[in-house]
């Protein structure tokens, strides 16, 4: 209880750090006896703790989405670069494979006018 007294005192004096504020909020959320012992503080700190949790969840979710998009872009870029730099052969005659196209090209060059 000394610890929570100190944290509440720091909270009222405005010199509480973010980490200490997290501890304080967690105590009020997790422990029924703390809420019973400090009913006035509880009315303020429990909603505040819930709001902080929601904010943190949202922030984590935002980072998670941003990281997913970044990974997708990197993978997509890699696949795109690889596919775009890989030789491909297209022919409107489906029976004409890339080997035949290559032979046709070579023969064309050798008999070019």
């Amino acid at each position: 209880m000394e610890k929570i007294d100190k944290l509440i005192s720091d909270y009222y004096s405005g010199i509480i750090s973010q980490g200490e504020m997290d501890d304080l909020c967690r105590m009020f959320l997790d422990k029924e006896d703390v809420r019973m012992s400090y009913p006035d503080e509880s009315r303020v700190l429990v909603p505040l703790a819930l709001a902080r949790m929601a904010h943190r969840r949202k922030r984590n979710q935002t980072w998670s989405i941003a990281a997913s998009i970044a990974v997708m872009l990197m993978l997509g870029g890699g696949i795109y670069a690889h596919a775009a730099n890989t030789p491909h052969t297209y022919c409107n005659d489906p029976s004409f494979t890339s080997t035949y196209v290559e032979q046709w090209y070579n023969k064309t060059l050798e008999t070019a006018v």
Partner: peptide
């Protein structure tokens, strides 16, 4: 799709 052409092909990134 031209009828007067027997075959059309392209080689990319050769």
């Amino acid at each position: 799709d031209r009828d007067d052409l027997e075959r059309v092909a392209c080689l990319t990134n050769r």
